[in-house]
Each structure stands twice: as C-alpha cells, then as structure tokens.
Write a protein that binds this DNA or RNA. Structure first.
Lengths: 158, 158
DNA sequence: GCTTGACCTCAAGTTGACTTAAAGTCGTAC
DNA sequence: GTACGACTTTAAGTCAACTTGAGGTCAAGC
C-alpha cells in the first residue's frame, strides 16, 4: 500500500497543506505515519477529500461530514438519519435549481426591476412553496421557466 | 401600498428581527420608514428574503447575493456574470446530486467500509470527474446509481 | 558540513454572519 | 399617567473554518 505525503495530497486534491493539517488535527482525515516530520496518508484520503468538498458545498459542517463518513470508514449515523440527510439534500437541490432559474431569468428579463416581473415572482414563490408541501402538488405540464412561451403577461416584460 | 413592520416580517419570513436589522444595516434589504422607532418594510421584502435564503443555501455570501439582486431591484452584475453564476450553480447541483446518491448508497450498502465499496468509489470519482470536463463525455445508458442492477462486483457488496 | 526547501508545532489572528447585552424609546391598554 | 411589550441603538461577543507567523526540524544535494 503506497503512502503519499502531505505535499502530494495537497497538490492532487487542490487543498492547502495547512487545511490538511487542520483536518488531521480535528480528526476529519487521518495521517497514517510520518517520513521525517512529514505526514503521510493512504491514497484513499483523496476520495475522502472529494467527499469533504462535496459536503462543504452542500453546507454541511465538518462535524456533520465526519459523522456521515467517519474516518474509520463507517458512518456514525444510523440508516434513517442518513436518509433524512439525503432528503434534505433533495430539498436543497430544488432550492438551488430555482435559484439558478431565477438568476438566468434576471439575466434575460427586461423588466426595469425584476421584483415587478411576474415570471420572476412566480419562480421564487413557486420554489419557496415547494419547501412546505412536497407530497401532493398537482402535476402540470411543464414548460421551461425562463422562456415561458407565448402567453402574454400583464406587464409584457416576459 | 401597505407597509409591514419588522415583527411581522420576522414572523412571516421566519427570520429573527436581529437578522433583519443586520441586513438592513448592511444594505441587503431596506426599510422604507418607521412607525415610532419600528422599521417598516414593503411587502416585497418577503420575496427578497426568500431569494436571500436560497442564495445562502447555495453558499453565496451576502455580498454576492446583494450584487445579484440589488436592493434597488436591478442586479449590479452584468448579464455574462449572471450566466456564469448560473452555470456554477449547475455544477454545484451536480455535486449535491452526487452527494445525495453517495449518502443514499452508504445508507444501504453492506460493505464493512464504504471506502472499499466499488459502487461508492464510482459515484464519488464520477462526480469529481464531472467537475473538470462537462462538455464532451460519451452519453451512456443511465441506470440508477444506488441500485446498480445485476452486474456482480468484485467485492460482491453492491 | 552546510544550505535549502518542504515540512513541523503552537498560538494567535481573520472573516462572515450573526447574536447578545445593556440601556433607552415608543404606542397602547388599563 | 403609568405600566407593558415590542421595538430601538451600540458595542461587544461568538462560532466555524481556516490562515498566518514565528521559530524549529529534517533529508537531500552540493
């Protein structure tokens, strides 16, 4: 089993060595030895760092991440707890999708203030409504949010 | 135009009044008047707060959020910059989707350590690979990531 | 043997986003 | 007219996640 030292990990993962030291210190990753003073890691640490990066971009705390993928290799969280996390992620993905659509829309929309734009309002309120009730919403014919077709709107912007 | 005061905004948006004051102070939202000492807001502040919440859960800073949806109603960012933001969000959505699948998988997989599980590794590395090259990847028949069908894996876990 | 560069430790500093505390000010109900 | 409760201001405190700085150590190349 080949060990890689901190410099290489840092370079391959694109994570500063100081951060790796910090992660090691808090037990999020763990070095398996030293060569001289240099920390050495198992190759799988790269996979862990990918997970950490994904977790962070989802807004999880390092603590949460550690609990989800314990450095021993087994999650500390129970199966239902993990599923709960996954479902929360689903929620968040919907939020981000709405935000993306909103941003694309504001980039294109000619309304003087997007707050006045009905399409804009629709995307946002629709997204926030989804937060509350997921289960039973009437399935409708979808059309792309940022190009709402030919239906004229009151303001005429979109 | 009906004004709503800070208490009501706080309650309706589920945001502490102290936070609203803070947002007001840094110019992320703006109160339009006072009744006595109480800040009063236009109803559209609720929409703004929804946007702020979405932006935050995407990891944007309050500064970024302000720049994307300026309180005047017009974004400070240029069209291409907005599209760039939207594309970054697309990236992030993919990341979160991979993370969700990974979590669901670790919840179900029986491997003693998920680091050893080939399915796990596949989800994660696939996700991180997507970060680099988006444009030209060969389109393949998809199958759901966490139930990889009948193909036996080396370890036999998944 | 000496220098160099990449690491080390430990403590302290930084940043963003708030929260809390203390002391004050209104409008309303009694 | 006074007590109450919901607000106000300002300054200071908190928290996570790092980063920085100072001073030290080690292996390799000259």
């Amino acid at each position: 089993m080949k060990l890689i030292d901190i410099g290489e990990v840092s370079e391959k993962a694109g994570v500063p060595a100081s951060t790796l030291r910090y992660y090691d210190e808090i037990g999020l990753i763990s070095s398996v030895g030293r060569s001289g003073l240099r920390r050495q890691f198992l190759p799988e640490v790269l996979l862990q760092l990918t997970l950490i990066s994904m977790g962070k971009s989802a807004g999880f705390s390092l603590d949460d991440i550690a609990r989800m993928f314990g450095q021993n290799g087994k999650p500390e969280l129970s199966r239902p707890e993990l599923h709960k996390r996954a479902n929360e992620l689903d929620q968040q993905i919907r939020k981000l999708t709405a935000l993306r659509d909103t941003i694309r829309h504001t980039a294109e929309c000619s309304a003087p203030s997007h707050m006045e734009c009905p399409t804009f309002q629709r995307i946002v309120t629709l997204a926030s409504r989804k937060q509350q009730k997921i289960a039973k919403r009437p399935t409708r014919k979808k059309r792309p949010l940022d190009r709402p077709g030919r239906t004229a709107t009151k303001s005429g912007y979109c």
